[in-house]
Design a protein around this nucleic acid. Structure first.
Lengths: 345, 345
DNA sequence: TTGTACGCGTTATCAT
DNA sequence: ATGATAACGCGTACAA
């Protein structure tokens, strides 16, 4: 169906053995091969437009030069951006990437991992969903190189690249406090994933540290399926609480989008009546009528580190490298103090 | 490194030949194999946690159950959504998808195609960039199954799934005219890609059909690299033209985003001073202070058809299937007539 | 049910 | 010094 030119076609045409062709094309033992035949082989390979069959090569060498990447959902901008960076980075090192979306479902995650393993990927970069510890541990037992991305499990020793979500949440809340907001709510996920717990705990700790009592209704937890209705209910609950909030921290870009969609339709004004901050950037945030302050993850660095950790793991199996990067707060209009708003505009 | 359990491990433990194990696990010749041994083999396979080595299988069968998908840029929401749909659709049919982003660069496109071919993908779904006709034609000569996505080349007979961009543009302009706009501009790409030409021509034709003279400055062409500065200049040119426009059609979501970002910072109001319509949906459009009317492509249908055409092509090589789907106009506030605006709100 | 050639490169060993 | 032979990786499919 595809390339039918094989090594032995070249060998036949050149009047040499297939092995020799292999050596030449891979630049092996260059000292032991006469320049003349080497050139002849290269010429013929060129004119036959030969390209090596990766399947056969991989079968023999047990190396596919492929890495598997599993994210939550490739159609989410956060995942898509990260995927793109990883793809580019891997490609620089001659690696091909195959993607999969887990939809935060550990069953689907497990299935994806195994299809990738059947295809003999050299290693995996994974954003594991909740309750997927067993899968990760089994990969470790099999000595399959993995790097966790965006998330990690405190109880499992693996390579990972994450950000300091606790600190990021704290910083966001401190910023809100510094702009005079006192009734700060948060909408985030009801999940046991460590990075999400840290976002939640950072929020709580920041308020406590500043002597602010966290009202029960100020912390709204929603399902990780990102149900629009549920998120809207959470927004309404925050606003109708007693006392109602004057600022909200959104635990993800999906939550932010759904919430802002509702807020857009209410009479409420941002930032006068409500300040908002959100985790992760999307273009939508800049286009909101009051550009949204957000917590920016260093995506390039995350992607590059993940690939580099994985590749170094491929060379020296057993190496464990971890990074916890710092996120930065990008301050825009959505958190301007009301009294500064007019002079700023 | 990974699965070390092979067919012959099972065969040894079961005291049968490797061939028999293969038959059993593939449910071949079920009538000719005793139920007892079949069960024994399955049990052993289960307890050894065997899973087949796709590399070896593919090498023999010349089938990888993998499709290659090349889009312009996986980090663009339009591409990402489509990719996700195709991934899911392929997965339903037991196919794995490998992605690549061409960045509209024919050289990169060609390179991606060849890495995929070296990996022996069964077929390709491609959004070809400009000047990649030669690559497509060479794939055809090699009888490699392909389906073009989102774009096509009029001179080349291939399977494709596209939308009627000409009609979509016309409909958008007609809608603007029907809401009383008379000075309608367009910002789109300076590209020879057929689908982009059709977007441009649909705009021109719609105006001509309605006896509107298209001022030169109303049609602004920008590079496909989506340079922010260039797009902003185009917006400014439209607004400062004589006469200045009272409506704009954006040729892509990237153009729309960049333009709206600028418009957001001007004193100009949408839709009072300017109506806007854009090709393709992103969430950003709903969050703009005046939710943006857009041309919606039937992404699910496009993705499903593309996969189905490719798979049917894998069975019966040489089949050519094409679809030109209709896009729909989703009308939102950004094109409301100024005089209806207050009563509508 | 089984033996075995096969797909296609790789690489250690053998031959001039 | 140069180059050839052959085993190998692992599952498949045909002949026996």
């Amino acid at each position: 169906m595809q390339k039918r030119v094989s090594l032995k076609d070249i060998a036949a045409k050149a009047g040499v053995s297939a092995a020799l062709v292999s050596y030449v094309l891979n630049n092996r033992l260059p000292s032991r091969i006469s320049v003349a035949t080497a050139q002849k082989i290269r010429d013929i390979a060129g004119q036959l437009n030969y390209s090596t069959n990766q399947l056969a090569k991989s079968l023999k060498t047990n190396k596919t030069n492929t890495i598997g990447l599993i994210v939550a959902d490739i159609s989410n901008p956060f995942s898509a951006n990260l995927a793109r960076i990883i793809e580019d980075e891997a490609e620089k090192c001659q690696y091909t990437t195959i993607f999969g979306s887990s939809d935060e479902d550990p069953g689907k995650f497990d299935k994806l991992v195994h299809t990738m393993l059947n295809r003999k990927v050299d290693g995996l970069i994974l954003s594991p969903p909740a309750k997927s510890e067993a899968v990760i541990e089994s990969l470790q037992q099999k000595d399959i190189p993995i790097v966790l991305l965006d998330r990690y499990f405190p109880g499992i020793k693996t390579s990972y690249v994450i950000i300091d979500n606790f600190a990021a949440s704290m910083e966001a809340v401190h910023h809100l406090l510094s702009t005079g907001r006192t009734r700060i709510g948060m909408i985030t996920y009801d999940s046991e994933l460590q990075h999400l717990l840290e976002r939640k705990n950072g929020y709580i700790r920041a308020l406590e540290n500043n002597g602010v009592r966290v009202e029960k209704e100020w912390l709204q937890l929603v399902g990780i399926e990102n149900n629009q209705q549920q998120i809207e209910d959470a927004v309404r609950a925050l606003l109708s609480a007693t006392p109602g909030v004057d600022a909200v921290l959104f635990g993800s870009n999906k939550i932010a989008t759904s919430s802002l969609k509702l807020i857009n339709s209410l009479s409420l004004r941002v930032p006068c009546d409500l300040a908002v901050i959100c985790f992760d950037h999307t273009e939508m945030l800049d286009l909101f009528y009051s550009p949204v302050t957000y917590i920016k993850q260093p995506l390039e660095e995350i992607g590059e580190l993940a690939v580099s950790y994985l590749l170094s793991n491929l060379l020296h199996n057993g190496t464990i490298s971890t990074s916890q990067l710092k996120a930065s707060l990008v301050i825009q209009q959505s958190t301007t103090r009301p009294d500064e708003l007019y002079q700023a505009k």
